[in-house]
Write a protein that binds this DNA or RNA. Sequence first.
DNA 1: TCAAGTTGTCTAGTATCATAGACAACTTGA
DNA 2: TCAAGTTGTCTATGATACTAGACAACTTGA
Lengths: 242, 242
Amino acid sequence: MSIQDAPSGVALWRQVADGIERGIADGRFAAGEKLPGEIEIAETYRVNRHTVRRALATLAERGLVRAERGSGTYVETGRIAYPLRSRTRFSEIVGAGGREPRGQFIDASEQEATRELARELGLKTGAPLVRIESVRLADRVPICVSTTWLSAERFPDAGKVFANVRSMTKLVAHYGIRDFRRASTRITAGIVDATDATRLDLALGRPVLVVDSTDVDTMGQPLTTKRARFAAERVEFLVENG
Amino acid sequence: MSIQDAPSGVALWRQVADGIERGIADGRFAAGEKLPGEIEIAETYRVNRHTVRRALATLAERGLVRAERGSGTYVETGRIAYPLRSRTRFSEIVGAGGREPRGQFIDASEQEATRELARELGLKTGAPLVRIESVRLADRVPICVSTTWLSAERFPDAGKVFANVRSMTKLVAHYGIRDFRRASTRITAGIVDATDATRLDLALGRPVLVVDSTDVDTMGQPLTTKRARFAAERVEFLVENG
DNA sequence: TCAAGTTGTCTAGTATCATAGACAACTTGA
DNA sequence: TCAAGTTGTCTATGATACTAGACAACTTGA
């Protein structure tokens, strides 16, 4: 208890983390730059080095800094760090980075399941699907466009619902599903096509990260499958090496 | 850990306290009204009753609520709760209540110590004193006017210094005194006089609380003695019943 | 007067926070 | 190649936070 003597209800490591984050936000620590060493940070905040490490760990988890053993801890680039976990929520990831997430509905339509879509969703080929096109933004900058497919039978009027809530989490919540998780994720890359270029506000010829994924409910039942195209220059995916 | 599962670094009791304070600030809990019972609050926040009690204790200490055994916990009136402790700092008390403290210099002059002033300050009758008049405000509303006397020998040019720093704490700090405490406090009441009425933006005939107090340093040596006149309708003094 | 509901106080156990020290693993520059 | 400086990991200890249960002290209204 060195920063203030009356218990504040805010953990020391959190106060340190907030301090460093403020330093990054207001440019005192520039992107790519090396932070002071853990021992030096501990001295300036008058806390134990382990406390500093905990603060840095939370910042690293959120993608704001990156520690390099033997060298130092560096402020991450401006790219949005996008951890790929079984529990992946765009709004949470973007919000954790201190940016304002937003969803934008483009359009919805019905189509029949191709063999691949049917396999992903555990349906029969030709089953009725709802197809939703949407854009997701961070601080008004478009990050990715997504095409999402859902069973039209299980999620009637899913398109209209999504147009209102503009969030997949809220969409499935509308049908009583409180939780879901990422069952499979496949990442490739390509060149942006004309339609996506407009939607992403991206120049033609720029690379995109293409993510095919399927979400399942707590019972393992497939809910949605989607193909998202990320502006490569605006994100970086973090794969957990557990 | 019920409000969120990942450790946030913010103690539960603090989250509850912040929630209740927000409720008071935005009028969800009106002044004088009874808060929900501790058990009910515990249920809504999904925490233990003891955790709620800790949250309420901090709010009570800051004067925002008042607990009545057997009856309930009530939102305090709009009056500034002014705890009278040995360590009393206007700026801290007002700041703790979520208001912005400010000091205003009126004028300073020299005078000789009367017998009463000399006794309070541990000086000889007729010793040279500096007399400082000031107003203290909370959120731009004047709360009290004070007349402060100090030894002119120990605190040369105290008037000029105070005009700059506008804070007794900073004034004595200027002379190397890092800490002081309230040695004696005497409270009476009266009717505002014409001069104070203007300074307090108070109608003539309104009551004032008159507080005579003497501050001493850590060695018990008297530093300042003062007479403060508080607009009675804007404060209430809390006496610690320890 | 009494029952229900309220705040106050005590004990106890578990989890988290914070400190401390030591050493390993690694990078960098001389 | 080596020394200095860095992050990573381990053990250990005490303080604080949170939960849980029980009961006392008090207020209110029937």
